[in-house]
């Protein structure tokens, strides 16, 4: 006799076997006619340029983390605005304590310079010289 956990185990087993058998059988019977063009990277019919495994700047990760702070803030503050009146002054200030801690994180990352982005730094003197050279010639 199956226990309650045994039923779940049987359910998982059937699910796994179903997927494995389906993938295996479809691999057996499906048409398999690879060509060079078919295996090419799909770029909307264009000729692919370079590898799709491009390295992205690590700073995008930091920006994503910073975004996460505000994301969580919104997710937690919207329900708070609906119910804080039921908890009186305490509920009101708890929201501000939460904002204060998020603000601490914000101040930290600001101080650390993560909000700074490498900007192009044009050397105005060089540019002026170039303009003068063009004018002269």
């Amino acid at each position: 006799m199956l226990t309650e956990f045994g039923k779940i185990f049987a359910f998982m087993l059937i699910a796994i076997i179903f997927v494995v058998v389906t993938v295996f059988v479809s691999k057996l019977i499906r048409p398999f006619r690879p060509t060079k063009e078919k295996l090419l990277i799909y770029e909307c019919g264009e000729t692919p340029e370079g590898s799709p495994w491009v390295k992205f700047n690590i700073r995008f990760y930091v920006v994503a983390l910073i975004f996460l702070i505000f994301d969580v803030e919104v997710v937690l503050l919207v329900p708070w605005t609906l119910v804080y009146q039921q908890y009186g002054v305490t509920g009101y200030f708890i929201g501000f304590i939460f904002l204060f801690f998020l603000g601490l994180g914000m101040a930290y990352e600001w101080k650390k310079g993560d909000l700074e982005w490498a900007r192009p730094n044009p050397q105005s003197s060089k540019l002026k010289n170039a303009v003068q050279e063009v004018d002269a010639s």
Binding site: P31, K38, L40, G45
Partner: peptide
């Protein structure tokens, strides 16, 4: 037409 040709080539048979 060249793009359509390539997209067609990249579809799996049948």
């Amino acid at each position: 037409a060249t793009r359509i040709k390539r997209i067609y080539e990249q579809m799996p048979d049948p």
